[in-house]
Amino acid sequence: MIRICSRVLTFIRTIVNMSAVLLITLMMALIFAQILGRYVFNFSIAWSEEMATFAQVWLVMLGAGIAMRRGQHVGIDMMILYFPMWAQRLVKVAAFALVVWFLGVVIVGSTGLIAIGYIVKSTALQVPMAAVYYALPIGMSYFLLEFAIATLPQIFGSQSSDTEAAT
């Protein structure tokens, strides 16, 4: 059971990592093409900025989980170290519940956007906006997964747990 879970997790992380590398490369290529187009070929691509911006939305939504896994989200955790152990655990449980609520609201709320996104087409590319809005539930679900993996051991497990830093 645990083996299957960890395999699925490794698979998800690999996909997310590969997507991240592809997206940043795509953004770079699109903007470079736009500059080349303007100065070298004297021809403008109307959709390069829009496509790069959409890539950025996907990049950030997926990257939020990557940053969680790598411990790149900053926070101030030294204040609660002055609390007694039981209080620390209580605060952590409350904080965990609030974050789950927040990400849940984003994921549920995005369904409304996606419904609109099937009707509305983007300005330049003329693709349904849903193609971009799907980044919200998918990215934030992965964010939630990595957040749970990073936080739950601190609440239930031993006191010295560390998030996986290597990729």
Partner: peptide, 13 residues
């Protein structure tokens, strides 16, 4: 790139 995507996402998120 994975490192920089994490850092960028941490800022933009």
């Amino acid at each position: 790139f994975v490192k920089s995507v994490g850092l960028s996402a941490a800022v933009l998120m």
